[in-house]
Design a binder for these strands. Structure first.
Length: 216
DNA sequence: CCCCAGGCGTCCA
DNA sequence: TGGACGCATGGG
């Protein structure tokens, strides 16, 4: 039985060799990344990209302008991302918090020791969205867990099916150095292998780079 | 036709 | 506290 810490590091090496740098979430600004984090909730990324492009084309990718826009107009712009009524409320709630607590500067979240707690108080921002904003928009070394993380780890016997978000988050954070670049790439690699090989309802992962894990 | 996608809040036991 | 359900578009 190999130690969990060694296994997590070996998994990273194997995936990194197999897939290389994922350059994930190359949003042009922290605001754009945060908007994408909210819009991508339970939604395929191509749909999110259309919604983000609509906002930018309308010249609204700016915290104050987004808040000033009529909600019905914002809803129309983000329509391709689905759940557009819910997401309009969630975007506005996030923007109001950033305006109130950080002067409209998403980057300022990075310097607030209670940034995660403030994000979690926003209606519509849960643990994954909060961590995504902190890691990808603010560069804070916090590990992002998502459906792919659950599926890849449980498929290879590294986590229970009923492991919670915080169970998995702590698994990574306790066993890896707190490095934003590493957390970013590791999460991106898990998503990549999850899309590529570790698909739902497919118990066998043919050609999966992580096949070695089952034999460890 | 079906299932799936980088969740979350609400409701109810 | 935890499991079902609604939210909605677009792709395979």
């Amino acid at each position: 039985m190999v130690k969990t810490r060694e296994l997590l590091r070996e998994i990273y090496r194997v995936l990194n060799d197999a897939y290389g740098d994922q350059r994930w979430w190359p949003g042009e600004t922290p605001l754009e990344v945060a908007v994408g984090a909210i819009l991508t909730q339970n939604t395929a990324w191509p749909n999110v990209a259309k919604a983000v492009a609509n906002i930018k084309d309308a010249g609204l990718m700016d915290a104050r302008k987004l808040l000033a826009a009529p909600p019905a107009y914002l809803a129309a712009l983000i329509r391709p991302a689905g759940y557009y009524n819910v997401k309009t409320r969630r975007l506005r709630a996030f923007l109001e918090m950033v305006a109130r607590d950080f002067g409209g500067d998403v980057t300022a979240l990075a310097n607030a020791p209670d940034a995660r707690a403030r994000l979690l108080r926003v209606k519509g921002v849960g643990p994954e969205t909060a961590d995504s904003i902190l890691l990808y928009a603010c560069g804070v070394p916090t590990f992002v867990v998502d459906a792919y993380t659950h599926r890849v780890l449980s498929r290879h016997g590294l986590a229970d099916d009923d492991a919670t978000y915080d169970d998995l988050k702590e698994l990574f954070e306790r066993n890896l150095p707190a490095d934003a670049r590493l957390f970013n790439q590791y999460h991106a690699l898990l998503v990549r292998v999850g899309k590529d090989r570790c698909r739902p309802r497919e118990p066998r992962c043919a050609g999966c780079p992580l096949e070695f894990v089952s034999r460890s």
